[in-house]
Amino acid sequence: MDLRHLRYFLAVAEEGHFGRAAARLNIVQPALSMQIKALEEELGGALFVRTSRRVELTDAGVLLQIEARRTLEQADHTRLTVERALRGETGRVRVGFAGNAIFSGKLTADLRRFHQRFPDADLTIDEVGPLEQVEAIRAGHLDIGYTPAHSNILGADLTVSRMGDWEMLVALPEDHPLVAHEGLTVDMLAGQPLVLYEAHDVHEHLFMLLTQKLGERCHIAYRAGSTLSTLAIAATGLGLALIPAPLQQVHIPGLVYRPLKEAEFTANLVMIGRAQEASATVNAYFKLVNEADY
């Protein structure tokens, strides 16, 4: 007994006539009669009482009609559930973000677009440091990360998509002497205590540019693990923070922003994930984001 047999049986039971059931199923009547006979032989008894005008269900047939409907409904539900999972319409996407992902609008736009397209998929969103994102993705604890580019994302097991580039700003306390300038140059930062986001370690482009321009006059005083801690350190007067331009939307009392007038100094945002991703839902997220027109 298979699903086809059950569909044939229900058609005859609902139509009460082999000819009409055959037409509904788009098969010839003799073939339908043979299938019903084979089903009755397999189950060991009659399912229909046949008359010259119509066929009626036996007691066993009534019972099979109830169970057949349940079975076919469950089979259809199973098929639809799996099909939706394969299309990425259900499942889970775990997103980590750092840096200017929120303030640039990229992360929120992507999440909103995905939720509108796949409302039944589960989204979890957590602030995770740039270096921790890579570890979490490789360990299977995170699916997608939004982070400034850094050396740890370079690997064949990761996929990297460029999300945007922005000019750099200097965040400094409002009573600092450099506030008098509308824009700052790198030379003005010589000897000043600087605050860098943790992604910019000794191998990163920003740190290398600073040391190249300033040499021994480059003084990295702090490395902060989050956006707010970077700005908080600057606001207390402990150092000047180099930040992406979108972060100027954050208002902190006593903190001001000035553009860094150096063309080669830029901030960026990338989206990272596993190069060999097994989840259809995560792949659907990647596809939707990469096709987006910002």
Rank of each mutant, 00 (worst) to 15 (best):
L123F: 10
G99M: 09
H150A: 12
I153L: 15
R87H: 06
L154C: 01
T147W: 10
R84L: 12
M163T: 03
R92V: 15
R94F: 03
G145Y: 09
E135Y: 08
P119G: 00
I125F: 07
S104W: 14
G96H: 00
I137V: 13
V134C: 09
L111E: 00
A139L: 15
A109P: 02
R162V: 14
V160L: 15
L131N: 04
H141E: 14
T147R: 06
V128C: 02
V134R: 08
S104H: 07
V128A: 02
G91R: 01
V160T: 13
L111G: 03
P130T: 12
G145M: 13
G164F: 13
L142G: 07
A121C: 09
F103I: 01
V82R: 15
D122H: 12
A149I: 09
N152P: 00
Q116F: 05
V82A: 10
D165W: 11
N152C: 08
L107T: 06
F97W: 14
A136E: 08
T159Q: 14
V95R: 03
G88M: 03
I102T: 08
G88P: 01
I125T: 06
N100C: 15
M163Y: 02
G145N: 11
E89I: 06
A101L: 09
D165A: 13
D165F: 15
T124F: 12
H141T: 11
I102D: 04
Q133V: 11
H141S: 14
S104G: 11
A149V: 10
R94C: 04
G140A: 08
F97P: 01
G96L: 02
A109Y: 04
H150F: 14
D126E: 15
Y146F: 15
D120C: 02
R87V: 02
G88N: 01
P119R: 03
E83L: 15
V95G: 01
A101M: 11
D120Q: 15
G91I: 06
R87Q: 00
A156S: 13
H141N: 11
I144M: 08
R94G: 05
A85T: 03
G145S: 10
D157S: 14
R138W: 03
E89P: 05
A121N: 04
L111R: 00
E135M: 12
V93E: 02
Q116K: 10
F114G: 01
I137N: 00
P119K: 04
L158K: 04
K106L: 15
R162M: 13
L86A: 08
P119M: 09
G105V: 11
A85K: 02
L86R: 12
R162S: 14
R138E: 11
V160I: 15
I144E: 03
R112C: 08
D165E: 12
A101I: 13
D120I: 07
H150T: 07
G99R: 05
V82E: 13
I153W: 03
P148Q: 08
Q116M: 13
M163Q: 11
E167I: 00
P130C: 09
E135C: 06
V128T: 04
E135T: 14
G99Y: 09
V95K: 01
A139Q: 14
A101R: 08
G155Y: 03
